[in-house]
Amino acid sequence: MSITTISSRDFNQDTSGAKKAAQNGPVYITDRGRPAHVLLCMEEYQRLTGLNASIVDLLVMPEPAVEFEPERAVITPRPVDF
Rank of each mutant, 00 (worst) to 15 (best):
M1L: 05
M1P: 02
S2E: 12
S2T: 14
T4P: 00
T5Y: 08
T5V: 07
I6D: 02
I6C: 00
S7N: 04
S7V: 01
R9K: 13
R9V: 09
D10H: 04
F11A: 04
N12R: 10
Q13L: 10
D14S: 03
D14E: 05
D14P: 00
D14L: 00
D14H: 00
D14T: 02
T15K: 12
T15I: 15
S16H: 10
S16N: 11
G17M: 01
A18V: 02
K19P: 00
K19E: 07
K19V: 09
Q23V: 04
P26H: 05
V27F: 01
V27H: 00
Y28Q: 13
Y28V: 14
T30I: 00
T30S: 06
T30G: 04
D31S: 13
D31I: 11
R32M: 05
R32A: 06
R32Q: 12
G33C: 09
G33R: 06
G33Y: 04
G33N: 03
R34Y: 11
R34W: 08
P35F: 06
P35S: 08
P35N: 10
P35T: 02
A36W: 08
H37V: 12
V38R: 08
V38G: 07
V38M: 06
L40G: 01
L40H: 09
C41Q: 03
C41S: 09
M42V: 13
E44I: 10
E44M: 13
E44N: 09
Y45M: 15
Y45G: 08
Q46W: 10
Q46R: 14
T49A: 11
T49N: 12
G50E: 06
G50I: 06
L51I: 07
L51Q: 14
N52H: 15
N52S: 11
N52E: 12
A53G: 08
A53R: 15
A53H: 13
A53L: 15
S54D: 06
S54Q: 08
S54R: 08
I55H: 11
I55P: 03
I55S: 13
I55D: 12
D57T: 12
D57S: 15
L58N: 09
L59K: 11
L59I: 07
L59N: 07
V60L: 06
M61D: 09
E63C: 10
E63R: 13
P64C: 09
A65G: 12
V66L: 09
V66D: 07
E69I: 11
E69C: 11
E69K: 15
P70T: 03
P70D: 01
E71S: 10
E71R: 08
E71H: 10
E71Y: 06
R72F: 00
A73G: 06
V74M: 03
V74R: 05
V74E: 02
I75N: 01
I75S: 00
I75A: 03
I75Q: 02
I75L: 02
T76F: 04
T76P: 01
T76N: 05
P77K: 11
P77Q: 11
R78T: 04
V80M: 13
D81A: 13
F82P: 10
